[in-house]
Nucleic acid binder design. Structure first.
Length: 120
DNA sequence: GATCTGACCACCG
DNA sequence: CCGGTGGCCAGAT
């Protein structure tokens, strides 16, 4: 009896909520980190679109620190950048805006991940 | 229920 | 650095 098809993205939201202020993660990173659930980066994107209140979706960026949302919604992109900068995320200068991953990419320890998913 | 689309990503030129 | 391409698979139509 396992009707756990309520929210397959639950682990994603759990993980994103755990991202500290001033740090970011990439879609692909989240996809790879949520072991137990087979997800692709695209699905994480979908998950963010369905992101319920309380999930800091702005802290999820594209590979290399880009803002893939810029293509679809330039306005939202600006909003995302504002929120991130307010949280202390560093943006690198250049034509295409991108986060300074070297400093701001969140890389949780195994222990932290276990805490989140309650692994043993 | 088939087809198109997409808050992605790696690869190639 | 930028554009195109294929693969991914859950939503939207």
């Amino acid at each position: 009896m396992v009707e756990e098809e309520l929210d397959i993205y639950e682990p994603v939201y759990l993980l994103v909520r755990a991202v500290p202020i001033g740090k970011v993660v990439t879609y692909g990173q989240v996809a790879g980190m949520t072991e137990g659930v087979s997800l692709t980066a695209r699905q994480v994107g979908t998950a963010m679109r369905f992101a319920p209140p309380g999930v800091p979706w702005q802290r999820v960026v594209g590979a290399g620190g880009t803002l893939p949302i810029a293509k679809r919604s330039p306005e939202m992109k600006s909003r995302q950048r504002e929120m991130l900068e307010r949280e202390g995320v560093i943006f690198l200068p250049g034509v295409a805006e991108r986060v300074d991953m070297r400093q701001c990419q969140w890389m949780p320890d195994v222990d932290e991940q276990e805490s989140l998913f309650g692994s043993e």
